[in-house]
Write a protein that binds this DNA or RNA. Structure first.
Lengths: 193, 193, 193, 193
DNA sequence: CATGAATGAGACTTCATTCAT
DNA sequence: AATGAATGAAGTCTCATTCAT
């Protein structure tokens, strides 16, 4: 029970919702506008999603899916942790810059105190990227890197990418190249020369 | 135009607003609840702050002031960049853990996408911490560290601290010590051994 | 965009609003009460009318339409200015007495000092009665009456009718017959015998 | 118990209230603005007048007193009804034009559904002008004019003057001379040549 | 007696959700 | 199944009045 038409309509709604939520945030977005943008009746929104929150969560998931699918396809040739780090930073920054809507949705997803909103991104990330977590374990085993909790490193990496891209977009004080290079350099060898 | 009594009452309101905003966020918080919590009439809120947004911005500023004043007092004995980095991380993490309300306000301010909200924290940070920015310049001059844009580093540092404290609080997967050590280690020498 | 049902509901609202505005005036009337009286949700008011002011203006227009339609149908057999004058006074006074709500709305509209409110009655009056203005011109041409600015005369007539009906209603010092006769007599030949 | 200072202050308030009520009406005027304009504290308003309504009524009375005092002094030389009529129209129109605040207060006094507001003007009028009502009786006795209810004529006269001055002020379609002449002519001999 | 800060009822309006068509 | 008109709870803000200083 999910005809082709229904799937199409669901995507239609998520696409429209992405745009509105990205621009207005969870609270600013109106169901009215989303329905209009999706070219469906307001009631239809409620047939596909329980309520506004549910639509919001699904929108985040929808965008996260798209971005991690892209990132996955760009890092899967990485040969070691070093390589992976560089490819991940490059791919993520690039994707965010090419897909401002995805980016805004991700940035805003932290805003709301909806715990599900935070969780859903992590869930999708794990779905697509957990296979790469092994690179870490291997590098630690091999003694190439310090013995870190890899989740901490990943959180740091994520958060740094997002906030630097945000700063780059709001006030173009730093170039994309500068951001990427700094990220790579810090995470590899820190500030020390 | 700001008698002692008025100052006291303003603080009273900001204290109450902090708690409510921290718990509910800008949109979830109701002026009614804030008034009740502050033990003043709803109209009084509007005598002291133009509207809800204005109260929100002032609440953020109020909390930022408190936190940077603390941090300043704990890092001002730092002798060099290395020292400063360690002291800053220690002081900031400690303050956030001891002051969950401040922390929640700051976290939310980062994500509200309210331009004033972001700006106000930066303004206060600069007010208290800009004197330390020299440590960076000196260390670069002396060749002790790589030639980085210090603003990028600071943004990374800030954002990492906030998100790790956040993770620590939501699911106690990492100890405080672990967080601090990882932060210090990564920023000093990266993941490489 | 105005189905039969919608037209009906709009009339329903205007009918209820007339009653409330007549009794309470623009400022005294509450949207809540109007909604309740119209047996619609408060939100529905805002679907049909932009805001309270807009509803007020439309209520005045609605009542003006009704009254001038009636008056028009009672004066259209008039053969000359004299006849018209008598018929107009008779019809207008009668209508106001039979429709106290219309009357109160019109009285208030004159005094609201809301420019739109005054304008709307004049607009409707012109729509229904402008064809009779010719009677004036003809009578002047024929030398039957003095050379007056007919707008001044009409303003005087209007205003006298309204205030005499008002006085009649607040303190029944004068009978309806007395009012009508005096109006007719004064406007035809003045106080002089 | 009404010292000179208190009388002065009361007048001060009424003067300021006149201006504000004339501009904003009963509902638009704020006690705050009136207090500021009167250069007294808001609380003082309540020492001199029970509440806003009471202040409003007193303001109307204050202005009515001034205007009828003026009119009285300009019509008291009238030798007969004809003379009185002309002098009254001339004086009233002139006073209204020279005192826009009084005029606006009087116009607005009908707006509110405060019955006291209407009554107070009539009370003051009677106080100053009732002595002239005899002119009417005499003229009727002498057979110079028709047998009318003089109150009806006075109401008509009042209301016509006010609305024509209003029209003159809002859109200068008719000159003052034209208004006065038409009023005099209609009330004396009607529209008939 | 004067002040103006504080109060809080109550006004308008919005918008997520429901439901008749 | 889809629509969008209707709903009404809930939100922000205003302002007449009170009252401590």
């Amino acid at each position: 029970m999910a005809t082709v038409l229904q799937k199409k309509r669901k995507k239609q709604i998520l696409e429209a919702a992405s745009e509105i939520f990205a621009k207005e945030g969870l609270f600013g977005a109106e169901q009215d506008s989303i329905a209009k943008a999706a070219e469906v009746g307001k009631g239809t929104l409620y047939r596909y999603f329980e309520n506004k929150n549910d639509l919001y969560i699904n929108t985040i998931e929808f965008q996260a899916e798209k971005s991690f699918r892209y990132i996955d396809s760009h890092i899967n040739k990485s040969e070691n942790l070093d390589d992976l780090l560089i490819n991940f930073i490059e791919a993520t920054v690039d994707y965010f810059l090419k897909n401002p809507i995805t980016f805004d949705i991700i940035v805003r997803s932290n805003n709301t105190m909806l715990f599900e909103a935070v969780g859903v991104v992590q869930k999708v990330r794990d779905k697509y990227l957990s296979k790469y977590y092994l690179y870490f374990d291997k590098a630690i085993e091999e003694g190439a890197v310090k013995t870190f909790n890899k989740n901490i490193i990943l959180t740091m990496l994520d958060t740094c990418i997002v906030s630097l891209v945000y700063e780059h977009k709001s006030n173009s004080k730093y170039s994309v190249r500068e951001i990427k290079d700094t990220l790579i350099s810090i995470f590899r060898t820190g500030i020390k020369k």
